[in-house]
Amino acid sequence: MFLAAFTSSGPREVPLDATLLSRLMQKDVSAFEQLYDRHSRLVYGLVLRILQQASTSEEVVQDVFLQLWRNADQYDSSRGPFVPWLCTMARNRALDHLRLKSERQRRREDQPEELPSVVVAPDYEKALDEKRRAERVRALMASLTPQQKKAIELAYFEGLSHSEIAATLKEPLGTVKSWIRNGLLRLKEGLQATT
């Protein structure tokens, strides 16, 4: 009868991120550890892609997860999915690191940082598991034109603006703008069509 409690709930499920986050707010260390084990590869991969340097990337990832631990209450799980929010925080921090080189700016980094606001999933959001989602997004990115892909990557991973990308690629500003927009719209359509 007691064993039934383990087996009656169908397929083996892990607790939802939201469940772990609510436990995190009560300073539950094992909830933190589970969230770290679940998402650190994605977050570290993202930060490493931006900073291209392992030790600095680990510093940033450490910052990100400590922010999560200390300020989990700033994240409202009822409003949006956790992973996009976590990735936004990681990307912001990594790009800050990339940009801020002067001593004065470095000092500012030590101060606690505002967490990003919640990322709301659109209506077309499909409940894909993380692995399938990653595969889907990678496949869609690979389907963009090389120029669209390059321009989006320069913006996302290097934090460049329209005009900086135009200068880097030596292409007209208007062209760069439409590469980025059309590329992202194509990505959106692809995700909308995903079942």
């Binding site: 260390v29 770290y36 994605l42 990653a134 992202l184």
Partner: peptide, 25 residues
């Protein structure tokens, strides 16, 4: 913003060192 967040998946996943987890925990 949600769409842009999906771009995170295009970075290859990477495993941070056990030391990082140790320090964090």
């Amino acid at each position: 913003r949600w769409l842009v967040c999906q771009l995170a998946y295009t970075a290859p996943e990477a495993t941070p060192s056990d030391m990082l987890k140790g320090r964090l925990m």
